[in-house]
């Protein structure tokens, strides 16, 4: 009977390893701050630098936006989370709306974070910014073909029939772009724009890198992507046949979204949590964008080379709260227009 023996020894080994594993995390002193973060990229380095600068230690748990928010809510008053970090203003708005985030009264944050990138009641603050704009293949597109006043609406023009690629509705990017269009133009006009994209037989990709590949290969002429994906791809492949244009520069400006954070209402260490937020918005801005080509929200801090090489641009001056409050409507509108 070799099998039971194998089974028993397997179980014994498993128990042993779990036991040693558990004691490995169990014996660690909990850090001063517990951060739930949907931002993972480079987070270890950022928090290590924070600890070095301030002496405050940080444990962080990386996950997805909506799931982490739901976890904080289920944990309730007992939640260990002190700070909630996400990659989308909509989720920050939702967290504040659901009573998860506490207001922070901080002159430092008020100074560092421009008004349009933070909550009107100071429950969350944007920390880095990304722009969603047009890229095109210069072999197939003369930039003068692109509408400089309202570039997003211009893509609904029949000139772009069969030449257009965009991201699907499941990611947050398209929904927040459409939410900003609703905020800017009203629902009716926004629906007309999206219907125009659909009429142009827009091809849907599920990933920004696939969009960049498609423009480079010439299977798409224009696409909408986040600027940092192109910057990162250019870093790897400088000879990409792709150009970036800042959208709507003669009009309302390019669509932007923020990645940011807020102090959790049930935090038992709000002072250190506030200190982390302040550090992230000032001294930590460089660390936060290091290697990922996003734009710091703090105007005093420059972006990285490739991202700043795209040139200065005017962002769409809209209230970031719109992304959250109009998100469900945007998804409904996309479904109504048959965008998929």
């Amino acid at each position: 009977m070799r099998k039971p023996a194998l089974l028993v020894s397997g179980l014994a080994m498993a128990t042993l390893v779990t036991a040693s594993g558990c004691s490995a995390f169990g014996s660690d002193e909990p850090a001063d701050l517990q951060v739930y973060s949907a931002r993972h990229y480079g987070a270890e380095e950022v928090f290590a630098q924070f600890t070095e600068d301030t002496g405050i230690t940080v444990d962080f748990l990386a996950g997805d936006d909506a799931e982490l928010l739901q976890r904080i809510r289920a944990e309730g008053e007992e939640s260990p989370a002190d700070v909630y970090m996400t990659v989308d203003a909509g989720n920050l708005w939702a967290a504040a709306d659901q009573g998860v985030l506490a207001a922070v009264d901080s002159p430092v944050l008020d100074e560092a974070v421009p008004k349009q990138y933070r909550d009107s009641q100071d429950r969350w603050f944007g920390l880095v910014m990304r722009a969603r704009t047009v890229i095109y293949n210069p072999d197939n597109v003369d930039p003068s073909e692109l509408d400089t006043e309202d570039t997003y609406a211009g893509l609904a023009d029949p000139t772009w029939d069969g030449r257009l690629c965009m991201r699907g509705t499941t990611g947050v990017y398209t929904a927040s772009l459409v939410a900003s269009l609703i905020d800017l133009h009203g629902r009716e006009k926004a629906l007309e724009i999206v219907e125009g994209w659909v009429a142009n037989d827009v091809r849907i990709e599920s990933n920004d890198v696939l969009l960049i590949d498609a423009v480079d290969a010439g299977t798409c002429d224009v696409a909408l992507v986040n600027h940092y994906y192109l910057a990162r791809e250019l870093e790897e492949r400088p000879d990409l046949d792709v150009e970036l244009m800042w959208a709507s520069q003669d009009g309302a400006g390019t669509h932007v979204n923020v990645s940011g954070a807020g102090v959790v209402e049930s935090s038992d260490n709000p002072e250190d949590a506030q200190a982390l937020m302040e550090w992230l918005a000032t001294d930590g801005q460089d660390d936060l964008v290091a290697g990922n080509q996003e734009f710091p929200v703090n105007a005093d801090v420059p972006a990285e080379d490739i991202a700043s090489g795209f040139g200065d641009f005017d962002p769409m001056p809209i209230d970031a709260e719109a992304y959250g409050s109009l998100n469900a409507e945007a998804i409904d509108l996309l479904a109504e227009a048959g965008y998929q």
Partner: peptide
């Protein structure tokens, strides 16, 4: 299932 995620992430309401 995609719909489940769309509603969850769209309305932020589990």
């Amino acid at each position: 299932s995609v719909g489940v995620y769309l509603v969850w992430k769209g309305s932020f309401d589990f």
